[in-house]
């Protein structure tokens, strides 16, 4: 089994420089390249690039009952969106969700991984248990949690009744509904994030901790000054995929809240789907899709840049 260590992470540029001297290039490369990269390029062109331009095109028109473009309106769809309080609130909601999910997923993942990295008898059992949500898909997570949030027979309701606390109406109140979605999302992603963090923490050289122990540095200090910096590439990887993944969240919303109440969980991708495939307003939906694209592209770019700079500790 291959083990990775933090030192395995070679900054991209260095690798590229090494690479040049590694292999000799032959004249046939062009032919081979078309075979090797051609299919992927064709598929990405057809199913990623073309639709992007097409979406941009549709967003500049009005669309009729059949979804055909009928009237060129320029940027009207965008102007309408940006000036609509509804859409602006959707953007805020999405942002709150993304920040919430990313923060709690990483915090919980780190906590679990740090706990499970201790050398204790029986720790393997906990490692297995903590990773269990990796096998949970959207629909299953939604069903399990919908039942927990159920206001009459759900687990939370029974629990609060047993403890004589006021019952919380999870899905009827805008703030609670957001929490419900965040909790479910974090829970669903936790297994995966935990495993990745655990692997990273385990690969931190133990000599570092031994040295720290000798100097009498507290465990708390060790975590923030040894573990965290050493696993920073993993941390960035996880934050990238969590941020981008939660911007694109759809399944749980469709299964649990349907965007409500009062649009409190009506996030961007749900809107795109809803406006097109429920509302039949393909033009509006396309404009929203373009806005989503800009956001995702921005964050991906930011993360790439960040990754390049910061990871070379």
């Amino acid at each position: 089994m291959l083990k990775t260590s933090a030192t395995d992470v070679i900054p991209e540029k260095k690798v590229e420089a090494k690479q040049k001297s590694k292999f000799k290039l032959t004249a046939n490369d062009k032919y081979y390249a078309s075979i090797f990269a051609g299919p992927s390029l064709f598929l990405l062109g057809l199913f990623v690039f073309y639709p992007m331009f097409r979406t941009l095109y549709i967003s500049l028109f009005l669309t009729n009952t059949f979804g055909n473009t009928t009237l060129f309106v320029g940027l009207e769809n965008y102007v309408k969106l940006i000036s609509s309080p509804d859409f602006v609130s959707s953007m805020w909601v999405t942002l709150v969700y993304v920040v919430g999910v990313t923060f709690f997923t990483i915090a919980m993942g780190l906590l679990l991984a740090n706990l499970a990295s201790q050398k204790l008898p029986g720790i393997a059992i906990f490692r297995t248990l903590y990773s269990v949500t990796m096998g949970v898909s959207v629909s299953v997570a939604a069903i399990f949690w919908l039942f927990i949030f159920n206001p009459s027979a759900g687990f939370f309701t029974l629990l609060t009744k047993m403890l004589n606390l006021p019952t919380i109406n999870w899905l009827a109140n805008p703030t609670n509904a957001m929490w419900a979605i965040i909790i479910t999302t974090v829970w669903m992603h936790l297994g995966f994030v935990f495993l990745v963090f655990l692997g990273a923490i385990e690969s931190v050289p133990t000599t570092l901790y031994e040295a720290a122990d000798v100097e009498g540095v507290s465990k708390h200090y060790q975590f923030f000054h040894i573990t965290l910096p050493m696993i920073s590439p993993t941390l960035f990887f996880i934050s990238t995929i969590t941020i981008i993944g939660s911007f694109k969240s759809f399944g749980l919303i469709d299964l649990i809240t349907k965007g409500g109440p009062t649009n409190a969980t009506n996030m961007l991708v749900y809107r795109i789907y809803n406006d097109a495939f429920f509302g039949g307003n393909y033009a509006k939906s396309s404009a929203e899709a373009i806005i989503l694209t800009v956001i995702i592209a921005f964050f991906t770019y930011l993360q790439f840049k960040f990754l390049e700079k910061k990871v070379n500790y």
């Binding site: 290039l25 990269a37 990405l44 979406t55 097109a276 899709a289 995702i296 592209a297």
Partner: peptide
């Protein structure tokens, strides 16, 4: 492999990672 516009094509691949498939559902 070494081929013309390799950097450009790789950049295209990287850009694709920035484009959410959710935004392409209609086309």
């Amino acid at each position: 492999l070494d081929f013309k516009y390799k950097k450009f094509f790789f950049a295209l691949f990287m850009i694709t990672m920035m484009l959410p498939s959710e935004a392409a559902i209609i086309p």
